[in-house]
């Protein structure tokens, strides 16, 4: 059993990175998500089949939690405005940080939640399409089309926003 929790712990940095990207670079929410994920993973360790892919299992748990959160948030429209307000308020401070990175972070935030998940699992985590399909519970073809759409969207966003930013800078 300790082996299991040790293994789980070894994935924490990856879970955190993924969560951070998923939650729009929101450290607090991201670590909350990771924490919930770890709790669930540990409380359900008896459900994990030894020898199966622990990493995929952890990402599956995280996906389920994230999807639930998203559903709840979308049922609570009155929260949306405040969320935006607070992120605007608190992001102003880092306005001087590397523009490229922030461009990418903002662009990712504009994707739909499922596009974001597919994109990040594939690019950031380097998972096979097949694994991503299993984690997200969708056919591989759907993964491919969501991935493609996510990338098209990013390309559009990045190209559209670059010139605007340049004019503002000078």
């Amino acid at each position: 059993m300790p082996r299991y929790s040790e293994q789980v712990v070894s994935y924490i940095p990856h879970l955190r990175r993924y969560a951070r990207a998923l939650m729009g670079n929101d450290v607090l929410a991201a670590d909350d998500l990771v924490q919930d994920c770890l709790e669930r993973a540990l409380s359900r360790m008896h459900l994990w089949r030894k020898g199966s892919n622990l990493r995929a299992w952890l990402f599956t748990i995280m996906h389920n939690l994230y999807a639930n959160n998203m559903r709840k948030l979308s049922n609570a429209p009155q929260f949306v405005e405040m969320e935006m307000e607070s992120s605007i308020l608190y992001h102003e401070e880092d306005a001087g940080q590397e523009l490229e990175i922030r461009d990418m972070q903002q662009a990712i935030a504009k994707l739909t939640p499922d596009q974001r998940e597919v994109l990040l699992l594939v690019t950031l985590e380097g998972l096979q399409y097949r694994e991503v399909a299993k984690i997200l519970g969708m056919p591989e073809g759907t993964v491919m089309s969501k991935l493609s759409r996510a990338r098209n969207r990013l390309r559009t966003i990045m190209h559209m926003e670059k010139p605007k930013r340049l004019t503002r800078v000078k």
């Binding site: 929101d26 607090l28 929410a29 991201a30």
Partner: peptide, 21 residues
Amino acid sequence: VAAAICWMMLGGVIGWQFSSM
């Protein structure tokens, strides 16, 4: 659940890094 949503909304204000973990 409500608390979780609040945390999500406020996230980024302070980076709650796992000390609670």
